[in-house]
Nucleic acid binder design. Structure first.
Lengths: 152, 152
DNA sequence: GCTGCTACGTTGGTCGAGCCAACGTTGGTA
DNA sequence: TACCAACGTTGGCTCGACCAACGTAGCAGC
């Protein structure tokens, strides 16, 4: 990368910290997302992707799949429902639940978001080769696999 | 890992997203931090580490080194100064600046935080071998190296 | 039947992190 | 001198993660 040395390095103690690095990478990703698309689009994308892949789900199931809190899922769904990207109906088989279904409009929205997401992804990993990207993904997957996704 | 299959997987679209993965890893790290130590300790650790490695710095320099906003640095320093971990004096050579200096108490606090931080690190990367951990670190470093650390 | 217990959706709120706007002060420079 | 840039500070905003509590609905057990 073209670098004048006006970029002071973070201390070695932090550079050696995977949690710090992950946090920073996550922040950069969020920044790129924010520049590319609307607010809350990351969460929307996640929920829509889950519905697209698994079919209709209850709100609690969505939360479990994405590692999100029930409350937060609710808020995201309010947005998505208002945008007609999703329908929310009580489950006749279990009236505690809501069946959340992806609409055709939601499907289109998901495709649109996917484009921007891919662009962000590419920009984020610009410094890595294809092989390195896959390595990174595999390692992160392994880390995530060894932890419970859910807080509650 | 001992797993009954009651852990529904996140959709493939997200599993393939490095930004999503990094975000989740970062969240897990934050959770471990929160369980292990006090509130705001992550930020404190970062600032203290910077001062320990680079010697006295101005607030703006701290922000640049850590990729933090000036405002946020200010808040962290208020905490640290109140806890006598840091002193903040006007720079005689440039009276716009504050010279932030690590106290001996701050140094001890840093060592204390380092212990917990190492423990968190170890728990976070429990699923990875030593070689894999170094690989992951190297890849994340490479990603961070290809981006501007600063927003402003 | 009735009594618990659990799960679900919903409301409302906390906290930390990232970010922006504005102000007064100070340095450096045209 | 006048102008602009940098610094520290105050105040505010949004997001994401999290927790507490409520009412409803299902599901056991006695």
């Amino acid at each position: 990368m073209p670098e004048t040395d006006d970029t002071p390095q973070p201390p070695a103690r932090l550079r050696a910290l995977a949690s710090w690095q992950a946090s920073k990478v996550s922040t950069i990703g969020a920044r790129l997302f924010a520049r590319e698309m609307k607010l809350g689009a990351r969460a929307d994308f996640a929920v829509l992707a889950a519905l697209d892949e698994c079919g209709p789900l209850s709100q609690a199931d969505i939360g479990r799949r994405l590692g999100l809190d029930r409350n937060d899922v609710n808020g995201i769904l309010n947005r998505l429902e208002q945008g007609r990207h999703v329908t929310r109906e009580p489950d006749p088989a279990d009236r505690r639940r809501n069946v959340v279904t992806l609409t055709t409009g939601g499907r289109l929205h998901l495709d649109e978001l996917q484009k921007h997401t891919d662009a962000v992804q590419d920009e984020l990993l610009a410094g890595l080769s294809t092989a390195e990207r896959r390595q990174l993904q595999a390692l992160l997957t392994k880390v995530l696999g060894s932890h419970q996704p859910e807080p509650a």
